[in-house]
Design a protein around this nucleic acid. Sequence first.
DNA 1: GAGGTCAGATCTAACGTTTGCGCAAGCCGG
DNA 2: CCGGCTTGCGCAAACGTTAGATCTGACCTC
Lengths: 340, 340
Amino acid sequence: MATLGDVAARAGVSISSVSRVLSNHPAARISEATRRRIVEAAEELRYRPNFAGRALKSARTQVIGLVLPDLTNALSTDLMHGAEDEAREHGYTMLLGRSDALSPVSEVIARLIGEGRVDGMVLQLADGVPAAGIGDLLDTAAPVVLLNETHPGHVGSVALDDVTGARIATQHLIELGHERIAMVNGLPSSFTAQRRRTGYRTAMKAAGLRVPRGYETRLGYFAPDGRAALRRLMTLSPAPTAVVVANVNAAVGLLAEARQARIAVPRRLSVICVHDSWTAENTWPPLTAVQMQFYAMGRAAVRNVLDRIENGVLRDDVILDPPPQLIVRNSTARPPRATR
Amino acid sequence: MATLGDVAARAGVSISSVSRVLSNHPAARISEATRRRIVEAAEELRYRPNFAGRALKSARTQVIGLVLPDLTNALSTDLMHGAEDEAREHGYTMLLGRSDALSPVSEVIARLIGEGRVDGMVLQLADGVPAAGIGDLLDTAAPVVLLNETHPGHVGSVALDDVTGARIATQHLIELGHERIAMVNGLPSSFTAQRRRTGYRTAMKAAGLRVPRGYETRLGYFAPDGRAALRRLMTLSPAPTAVVVANVNAAVGLLAEARQARIAVPRRLSVICVHDSWTAENTWPPLTAVQMQFYAMGRAAVRNVLDRIENGVLRDDVILDPPPQLIVRNSTARPPRATR
DNA sequence: GAGGTCAGATCTAACGTTTGCGCAAGCCGG
DNA sequence: CCGGCTTGCGCAAACGTTAGATCTGACCTC
């Protein structure tokens, strides 16, 4: 690969001049003629600035790390897409990382930030990872932005408007005439689950509806959790006529369980979930959902990191725009007559 | 961040000694006492080797690029997962890139390889991207491995065993007693579509079945393509009783179209697809599929790149182990009586 | 005791880039 | 015609790391 030196030799000038011209140094005083010769030589040699040399000198890599607990998640892909787009528009590249049992968060951070591989990173913690070792985040050399999580003493996070999302879902069921509405939520330790719970309770309270004992399960965000939750709910008396599921994956499991238990959806039980994804379109019946803006969150997360790096701005973001959006499909309907 | 110099000062030795100890230089002659002092000092200062310095000196980044046309694809996630695991096990990090209209392949390669950001890369071309500018791949400084694609004069690719995958799918239908079996395939220009076609034709021929005119559509791999294909097939007379769909996304679309057109699956039409993904589990009816090993492909692709970098081995891989695997769900059945 | 070997450690150059500083030449006003 | 300013460019140091070459004693051999 051609270096600055090669270009300089071919153009008959010094390395410094080449550097100044090619990196558009503002205070560079170079004659038009020389500038042209340099640009020409650079093109002929297909010069590309060497990443390592530049990073070493400037202590900047123009790389943002995105570290997720699970890459194989439909929700992660939108997020990645958004992050990638935003990064690229600002001339940054994305480094993808994963944190799990084999490489705990602290390890990944040490590697990416400690070794100076990234200028900043977006980090999503796995559900249930305690805020324990997270204090290390604070004194790193590069900014870390947390997804769907805040941490005392740490500024820099991006979250979706989960409260509104859950509220919209609940309101949809209320407007259809349901009164016995249950919630299938994530683990109590989950930040998002707490917020979705708030949205659900707020909507119920506003409509003057009560939440009977046992109507709120908090088993987790995965398909088996949704199945287990449905089994539990249907033992209650009176059983709910509708359920707000806090996560699309759990809803898919719940729907499968309903089919198996011969509970007709939506005739006997309406189901709505928070999070839309293309899987929701392809369940049977197609799942009514509240679309959360993961793509926007990805963009916002990278923007947050960049604002921190380039302007020193500290910020906790909540994605309010675009707002969560109700996508009505076929898993919700008016409650069965007997209960009206 | 602490540098070698800092560690050296604290341990009271020279920088070179620190470097040799911490990077486990084989020919290093350092006394046990000094070694201990250095290691201790390094730990106290939380020393981490600076990535840029190391990369500049050694012309190695320990980073592998993975460039895909579309990150938001269920199949990409398994692939990424596999690539990530393999890379990590070898001490490499993964850089994720996307190639599309905004940043064409040549641009991405120039950025990643030309600037020395990666030591090698795995590249999946978008369907329909011609082999045109791809010649540039050959003379890059770092190895490029193509996914599901070969290019004349370029060695270094990893592909799934599409022929066998399609053959297994077709055989499953044949064993159920079907005789009028259609294929819904990808674009003729697609490398994988060509290979899946071969598998389908081979199985049909082996069973002594013919492929009537119009029984083979080649519209593409997306859901709308699957819908269009079904509409076309059902105008034929006699209509097929079963269909092999070359891709799960198209199959999902086809299934939705069938539901809309009130074509009962599998009673009137059996549907099987190549590619399994969790979406296939959640269609209605759940989709019988041939599971292709994307995770394994991700691992193999990275291994291929690494073998090239570290051992200079050139290789075209086809993932034969584990083999494509038939996952029987509920979208296939014996043909309707009238046609037997 | 001179010459040689060897372990243990340091010196130094180099990777490619950026940037503060210096220097020469040209131009201006006084 | 001289001091001061501007323009155009080169010199050289620095970023953190690695590795070949070199230095310094101590020890051994004859």
